[in-house]
Amino acid sequence: MALSLAIEGLDAGYGAVKALRGVALHVEAGETVALLGTNGNGKSTLMKCIMGLVRPDRGRLSLTIDGQVHDLTKLSPEMIVDLGVALVPEGRRLFPKLTVTENLMLGAFRKLARGAIRQNLALAFETFPALKERRNQLAGTMSGGQQQMLAIARALMSSPRLLLIDEPSVGLSPLLVSQTIAKIGELKERVGLTVLMAEQNFNQAIRIADRGYIIVHGEIAVAAQSVDELKANDIVKRLYLGGVA
């Protein structure tokens, strides 16, 4: 089950505004890769490009599954979901007027996902017991932390192999951020997921990341091969660790 994502020379934007310039990035099977950067640097745009929600202006975006290469720039979001990619969008984006279970069921909208609905529902409830207790509650009435759990669980319902997580820490208290990150790490071990996580919170993200990229003004400023290399980087020291560069 080999899966890898490769991005080269990616330009994307909204009209005249360029959000990404010449982005190159790769994620190999089983890795957890952190995409670090503060607000407005293009993290979400990159996530949306991978998911087919934003079409890049230029560049390559390819997903290789068992030796077969798929050009993601030519596929619709639902076809990308079928390939085993799922996005947990920034700000969670649940269906607030539907119950927890109904939200999860919508996560299994695709034909391919419906076959595994039982196992995936069991996995979701096992990983997030709080959701099982609240399965008939309306999603919009839950706390921020529970909503983030549900957003991740909903993404799992499509049996993804590559999970994209956009800013899981947004709007959560430090304790909940820590719990959410730990859950992602736990899930990854359990299901054998490959994870690309966009995050602002450097110290939390590197707890589970194998390596990471730093994106500044739409360009990859640092591509580090390990967490230690990240920590040692000057830009990181300046941006995140309060060090004097």
Binding site: M51, L53, S76, P77, E78, V81, D82, A86, L87, V88, P89, R93, L94, F95, P96, K97, L98, L106, G107, F109, R110, A113, R154, A155, M157, S158
Partner: peptide, 12 residues
């Protein structure tokens, strides 16, 4: 309810 969320879950 949320077009972006629907697209993320694979709703065509």
């Amino acid at each position: 309810d949320d077009e972006l969320a629907a697209e993320c879950t694979g709703v065509p």
